[in-house]
Nucleic acid binder design. Structure first.
Length: 267
DNA sequence: TAGTCTGTTAGACA
DNA sequence: CTGTCTAACAGACT
């Protein structure tokens, strides 16, 4: 899914819709979502009141009153919405919450995951154990220390064990803000660059979370979605800062959008 | 039509 | 260590 920002929006929405409330019905719409034999336990957990919705990186954790924890990962196209139907298009799991309606885990590409853990085993969950700090908890010394000089900065930032939650869109947007060229290597950043990067990451997420707050996360790929980004998905459009023409290229296997005129650092 | 994308990530491999 | 390819998957685009 979604990167950190979109998961955070879902977390806030779930807090609003679901916290303190229990569900009376559960529909597993896609069997592939559930490990075999876990179906009953999952349904039981979903009917518990939600105690707290938490997030780490791109993972969402629903702590239920019984001590079970539902862990969602949305990969490319997952989201959770609130509606009045138990089985909308691309729905994989839905549960009916008193006073809120049908909450639905939708996931067009079906790459998302859901697993059921307990409070006690949560710390052993591998993605959590291997995850780096949140962007707001990163220090310059830490980041510089774990980024080797010859590695692409982009690859390092997308590595969830270095920083949690950074995705492909965030890289394009951060590079634009910092005027970094797409292929900049870690070794090409000076002291000031590292400082700006560490400062800008949490700011970027904060701003995009605010802009994205709504009852349903819309992805750019979905028609009619406004593009809130400066360069991402703006190929051939004009750079809002310098008027240059936005270009795109593959870096580390994923497309980076950038302005060749004003993003020169490391070019 | 076939190939190539897509806001992810784990694992195999060179 | 690092980068690259693949596989999960579905649909849109060229």
């Amino acid at each position: 899914m979604p990167e950190l920002a979109e998961v955070e929006v879902v977390r806030r929405n779930l807090s609003r819709w679901w916290r303190g409330r229990s569900a009376d019905r559960v529909c597993i719409l896609d069997e592939k979502l559930v490990e075999s034999g876990e179906s009953d336990a999952l349904q039981a957990a979903l009917k518990e009141p939600l105690k707290k919705a938490g997030r780490r990186g791109k993972y969402l954790f629903c702590h239920m009153a019984c001590g079970q924890v539902l862990v969602f990962h949305f990969r490319m196209t997952g989201k959770i919405v609130c509606g009045d139907k138990p089985d909308p298009k691309y729905g994989r799991l839905s549960w009916h919450v008193d006073g809120a309606g049908w909450l639905v885990f939708k996931d067009q590409r079906r790459l998302g995951h859901l697993c059921l853990l307990s409070e006690e085993t949560l710390d052993d969950y591998r993605p959590l154990k291997e995850m780096g700090p949140e962007p707001e908890d990163i220090s310059v010394d830490y980041l510089r220390g774990v980024c080797s000089d010859r590695r692409l900065l982009k690859t390092a930032l997308l590595d969830q064990s270095i920083v949690a939650g950074v995705g492909n869109i965030a890289v394009s947007e951060l590079y634009w803000r910092l005027r970094f060229a797409p292929e900049i290597k870690c070794g090409q950043l000076d002291e000031e660059d590292w400082r700006r990067l560490v400062e800008e990451m949490p700011l970027y997420f904060e701003e995009i979370i605010e802009k994205s707050m709504s009852d349903e996360i819309l992805y750019i790929e979905e028609g009619g979605t406004p593009n809130d980004f400066q360069v991402y998905a703006r190929f051939d459009e004009l750079c809002s800062r310098c008027g240059g023409t936005v270009d795109k290229r593959k870096v580390g296997g994923r497309t980076t959008y950038y302005c060749p005129e004003c993003q020169r650092k490391g070019a």
